[in-house]
Design a protein around this nucleic acid. Structure first.
Length: 286
DNA sequence: TATATATGGATAA
DNA sequence: TATCCCTATATAA
């Protein structure tokens, strides 16, 4: 269930649950046994996200995790004196003093060196959750291709961390035709998209769910302003206590239903392998 | 039991 | 564009 906000929140949870203390590392599933042994007993120094990539410094090793489409990495408090037996297919289990974390179904789980991490990072476009990100890099890459903006937003070399939900929803929020060519996207419109992503993604981190409907965004921002965001919906460790907001979107998985803005029937079609949801009635901006 | 689907992405053709 | 990988869950048969 991961777009960039999920990985950034996960990095934060791992750091808070295990930071600066030793962890035991095992591979109950058996596919990561030898590498887990290299991490076992070492200190987890830091966990950080870049787009949808997670990097965890353990001892002098770097653990690289990418959850892909189906991966999960819940960090859970230890309630008895030791963690329960693993349930399902656990590639990697980390255990600290008060928490344990089970990694299931990752697309990538590997130990890498500094150069590899740098290569992965440098291949990514700007990440809206990175305060140092340069959105101009994305604009350059958008303006030199005729590929549609809908496809470009999913390209991690253009923008890092955006997935299928955010791309569909942000295009609808600004009435943008997903098939508008990158070459014809105005600079002003790109700044609008970027600013909106910088606004939306942190709400996704704070609430543990993607919020894009105007009224939900407004309420979420008010809760943040009141200092009530974050632990509302999830414990420190990401244990799911239920979503604070009802799960609702303007376009995502609403093909065949009417657009709440103009009434046109929404469409959902595979575009370059992923299902794109959009409103042909009001998403006409180029 | 089998199949479809999922907030992703690499690789083959 | 098609196929494959990773896993869990929902729905169909």
């Amino acid at each position: 269930m991961p777009e960039g906000h999920t990985i950034h929140a996960l990095a934060d949870r791992l750091t808070r649950a295990f930071g600066d203390s030793p962890v035991t590392a095992t591979s109950p599933q058996g596919r990561f046994t030898a590498d887990a042994a290299l991490l076992d007993g070492r200190v987890l120094e830091d966990a950080a996200a870049a787009g949808k990539h997670l990097f965890v410094d353990i001892g002098d090793r770097i653990l690289h995790v990418h959850l892909g489409l189906i991966g999960t990495f819940p960090v859970i408090p230890i309630t008895d004196d030791k963690p329960p037996d693993p349930v399902g297919t656990v590639r990697l289990r980390l255990v600290g003093q008060e928490h344990y974390a089970d990694l299931r179904g990752p697309m990538v789980c590997a130990l890498i060196d500094l150069d590899t991490r740098e290569a992965i990072r440098s291949a990514l476009g700007p990440d809206p959750l990175d305060p140092a990100a340069d959105p101009g890099v994305a604009l350059m890459r958008i303006r030199r291709t005729r590929r549609g903006i809908g496809a470009l937003l999913l390209d991690q070399a253009v923008v890092a961390g955006i997935g299928n939900v955010y791309r569909c929803e942000v295009l609808h929020r600004h009435r943008i035709d997903p098939f508008a060519a990158g070459t014809e996207l105005t600079e002003e419109l790109w700044w609008t998209i970027w600013a909106d992503l910088v606004r939306l993604l942190p709400l996704g981190v704070a609430f543990g769910q993607i919020l894009t409907l105007a009224e939900q965004v407004r309420e979420a921002e008010q809760l943040v302003a009141d200092g009530r965001a974050g632990p509302i919906t999830r414990s420190l460790t990401g244990e799911r206590l239920g979503d604070y907001f009802e799960r609702r979107f303007a376009t995502y998985q609403r093909a065949g239903e009417p657009c709440h803005r103009c009434g046109t029937i929404l469409r959902g079609e595979k575009v370059s392998g992923r299902r794109l949801y959009w409103c042909p009635g009001c998403q006409t901006r180029h």
